[in-house]
Design a protein around this nucleic acid. Structure first.
Length: 121
DNA sequence: AATGTGACTTGGG
DNA sequence: TCCCAAGCCACAT
């Protein structure tokens, strides 16, 4: 897979911005897109996070010096964890570990998959 | 090279 | 409220 400079810049901007989300807080894909000056590219923000492990390593090999990127602090515009083939449970666990509570509505979403969180907003 | 997929969001009907 | 089309574009096949 090749990464041209423009794509690398986008990934870097996303990771750098997500890294600034404080512990115990969350924000949205759309807001990250807005903050990096590409308000129409929220979908690509999700893509960057999806490929985080692979791409961050690659950027760091080129000297980016990116630390841990708290990808779990990014949720969708509805304020819930984006469903994605069961990968959302790890995110829910990480957020709960930071004291982030689960909304009543989201709780129902998760229960459909057999997950029953205790903390409810 | 071409097409499919998707960790998204917004606006309109 | 719900549903859908558009806009956008990185990655996978």
């Amino acid at each position: 897979m090749n990464l041209d400079d423009e794509k690398k810049a986008f990934h870097y901007a996303v990771y750098d911005t997500v890294s600034r989300i404080p512990h115990g807080n969350v924000t949205t894909y759309g807001h990250i897109a807005y903050l990096i000056g590409r308000p129409q590219n929220s979908r690509q923000v999700g893509s960057s996070l999806k490929h985080l492990r692979y791409i961050r390593e690659r950027l760091n090999q080129e000297g980016a010096g990116l630390g841990e990127v708290p990808w779990w602090r990014v949720v969708n515009s509805a304020g819930i964890i984006s469903p994605r083939n069961f990968g959302e449970f790890e995110q829910a666990t990480l957020l709960r570990g930071e004291g982030v509570v689960v909304s009543e509505r989201h709780k129902m979403d998760l229960e459909q998959y057999g997950w029953f969180p205790d903390d409810v907003e």
